[in-house]
């Protein structure tokens, strides 16, 4: 038995006798109420998703799963393929299973696969990753006066992130892969 405080992305809960992967979670303190953890969970077998709110003081059952270190190889029509560099076993996860996280994957990235009954059901990788800004508009005078302190920028990963207006094309930035948000300018090595 475990506490909902231990809920993290990628862990597997037993809910109504079935394994569900936590895909999103948020701690909530309504102030006038007890503390809760709001989750979105995905059935490890059927892929169905549910929203579920647990009180922090209740107990939940966390399913023991294996974790396997692997490297991202490539993406094709079958989905995303990873390789365990120790055993050379390959694993594939479908686009649906990987979801929005897929945009952060790049060849050779080290990831941790959550394995349930021999199959990968969830994927973890660094929370902070560097990306180069491939495309963005230059800051325009007067932007800050009208409240525009961020702008859209396209990264070398192909996805769009909101960055402060002072960020220019070609710069490297740190992105939080949990929230999809800009964190800071990447430190120069």
């Amino acid at each position: 038995m475990a506490s909902p405080n231990e809920i993290k992305k990628g862990i597997v809960l037993l809910h109504n006798g079935e394994p569900w992967v936590v895909t999103e979670f948020q701690h909530i303190n309504p102030g006038k109420g007890a503390a809760f953890v709001r989750t979105r969970i995905k059935n490890a077998k059927t892929g169905r998703t549910l929203e579920q709110t647990y009180k922090v003081s209740e107990t939940i059952e966390i399913v023991e799963v294996d974790y396997r270190n692997a490297q991202y190889l490539n993406h094709d029509a079958t989905g995303y393929t990873f390789m365990d560099m120790g055993t050379y076993d390959q694993y594939t996860m479908s686009d649906d299973e990987v979801g929005d996280q897929g945009k952060y994957l790049r060849e050779g990235l080290d990831v941790t696969l959550t394995m349930f009954e021999g199959n990968p059901i969830a994927l973890q990788f660094p929370r902070k990753m560097n990306f180069r800004i491939a495309e963005t508009t230059p800051a325009v005078k007067g932007d800050t006066a009208t409240g525009n302190v961020t702008k859209e920028a396209k990264t070398d990963g192909g996805f769009v992130v909101r960055v402060p207006i002072f960020i220019n094309e070609g710069e490297e930035v740190v992105v939080n892969t949990d929230t999809g948000e800009y964190v800071e300018r990447a430190k120069k090595e």
Partner: peptide
Amino acid sequence: GQTVTDADTWDDLFFKIFLTG
């Protein structure tokens, strides 16, 4: 679809639905 435990007060149950839905 929410869990219910004996320790849950009326307010807790209210919040489970309110915060989820």
